[in-house]
Design a protein around this nucleic acid. Sequence first.
DNA 1: TTATTGTGCAACCTTTAGGTTACATTAAAT
DNA 2: ATTTAATGTAACCTAAAGGTTGCACAATAA
Lengths: 112, 112
Amino acid sequence: MRRDVFQAIADPTRREIINMIAHHPLNVNAVAENFEVSRTAIYKHIKMLTECGLVVITQFGRERYCEARLEGLTEVADWVEQYRKIWTERFDNLENYLDELETKKKRSVRKK
Amino acid sequence: MRRDVFQAIADPTRREIINMIAHHPLNVNAVAENFEVSRTAIYKHIKMLTECGLVVITQFGRERYCEARLEGLTEVADWVEQYRKIWTERFDNLENYLDELETKKKRSVRKK
DNA sequence: TTATTGTGCAACCTTTAGGTTACATTAAAT
DNA sequence: ATTTAATGTAACCTAAAGGTTGCACAATAA
């Protein structure tokens, strides 16, 4: 199934899982042990992370190691970055527009 | 209500709304006109965006202008950035670990 | 004054998310 | 050969997400 990275990182538990395996792989049970919820619940989160490519699972014996593949986060990084100019230079870019709206507002208020 | 920025940007419609008003404010109906779904549906998305601080609404007469306040995206940017090293330098950092797992795997496969 | 426009919101519906328990399967340990 | 451990998955439940229609209300236009 094709999954959305934005959706994948929306859940705080999944973000925690990512953080947990970001530096070194862990098997499924090891990940699950760090949470209150059931192993099955964590397994589903992991599965979703694999479906959007943020995690890869490799089997060794009866264990399966979850490894972070965070390249997919570039999609998020790029999306956010396109707006950085806007929120850092907002006053330069929108001052005129806001002034205009402000004027409109005052006119409106006067009419009341 | 306190809302999560990660959750807010998880929905593609909300991301589109953000994109739509990123450079200049639009009133609620103007935003809604650009989508197939109902005005009410869009209104709810906008409301959620205001609840997490990404959008501010200012009333002028009977219109309400939605203005993007994207500073809140820094939370997302920061979260993603902390992992950039990992996905760009993964081979340097994890090579040993992966080699180790690889060795383990081969041993396991041999046993079959 | 009356009609129209822009909007907020209640009430309701359907799908999806996130969780649980129970069970099947395969590898490892006794 | 049996038992134990690690895991995948089905079946089910509840709450939340995302959508709709309908209505109330304030501001504007006629």
